[in-house]
Amino acid sequence: MKPVIILRPEPGARETAARAMKLGLIPRLCPLFEARPITWDAPPAKRFDALLMTSAQAARLGGPLLSRYRRLPAYAVGHATARAMEEQGFEHVTEGHRDGSAIAARIAADGHAHVLHLGGTTLARIDSGPLAIDRVAVYTIGGRPDAEIDPHLEPGAILLVHSPRAGSRLAELIGPERRGSLHVIAISPAALTACGLGWSSGQAPELPDDERMLALAARLCE
């Protein structure tokens, strides 16, 4: 069976591996990055109508200051982010299934105007529409110099790419001359584009979540 190589940071890498094993897949962990909390200043909650997180890492690494925003209507992109927020004490999290721009439209439709977006030091662009969005970084993503992908590679291997940044790093590590026997499944079209050309196949699910990525991997393994 073709191995599934998981490039995302922990603890998400282990979560993806567990899901893969339930599908009968063979996961191999090779996180290219690691998420680290940073010191951040928490703006007053009274300034905002709603709270947005587009990454589960924000909930996992935001620390005790997150408690200041538990009374705000909470919004998340993706099931993993919503679950991580709930684990931090946020109730009734509204879950979006596409991207930041789609959830921003939902927040505006719900009648909110000023939103606090907690995320990483690097954030994907969001079409905010009529919303005023204040972005505050609570974590950063750094490369892992000890990450060795070559031992995991074999013809037919499937590489799971969970962000455009991971796609760019993958393209640096594996040149075009080595891509022809490898498959890429990326979480979004942007992440797939970042991987470059020349792969045996490249796909992105209709909606950006782990389960759909693994469903595509399972089809490749049939």
Rank of each mutant, 00 (worst) to 15 (best):
E95Q: 14
A108V: 11
G156I: 05
Q57A: 15
V138W: 04
A186G: 02
L116I: 06
I158S: 05
G96W: 09
A132R: 12
T81W: 13
R8S: 03
P37L: 05
Q88D: 03
A80E: 15
G143W: 14
L182M: 09
G78I: 11
A171E: 09
I103F: 02
G156H: 10
S128L: 07
P208Y: 02
V136C: 08
R179S: 13
G24N: 12
S163Q: 03
A35N: 10
L131F: 08
E172Q: 15
L153N: 11
W199I: 10
S168Y: 10
I38G: 07
P151E: 10
V4W: 00
V4H: 03
S168W: 07
T94D: 08
A166M: 15
E91W: 06
A171L: 00
V184L: 05
G111R: 09
R135M: 12
I149W: 09
E86V: 05
L118Q: 04
S128M: 09
R219W: 03
S128R: 14
A217N: 07
A113Y: 02
T122E: 15
P9M: 06
R106I: 04
T94Q: 11
R71W: 09
V136F: 02
F33V: 02
D146N: 10
P3C: 00
D146M: 00
A109K: 14
L66W: 05
A35F: 08
E211C: 05
L65G: 10
A80F: 01
L131W: 06
G100E: 10
A191K: 01
R212G: 08
V138F: 03
L214M: 14
L131T: 08
E10N: 00
I38N: 06
E95L: 12
I38M: 12
L118N: 02
L207C: 02
G12I: 00
I133R: 12
E177D: 13
I26K: 05
A59G: 10
G111E: 09
E211F: 03
T81C: 13
V161C: 14
A18N: 04
A191E: 01
V184N: 06
D41Y: 01
E15P: 00
E87L: 14
I103E: 04
S55Q: 12
I149V: 14
V136I: 15
G96L: 02
L23A: 14
D41T: 14
A59Y: 00
R212N: 13
A82P: 01
A102C: 06
T16R: 04
P64I: 11
P189H: 03
A45Q: 13
A13Q: 03
M1Q: 08
A20M: 01
P151N: 13
D150I: 05
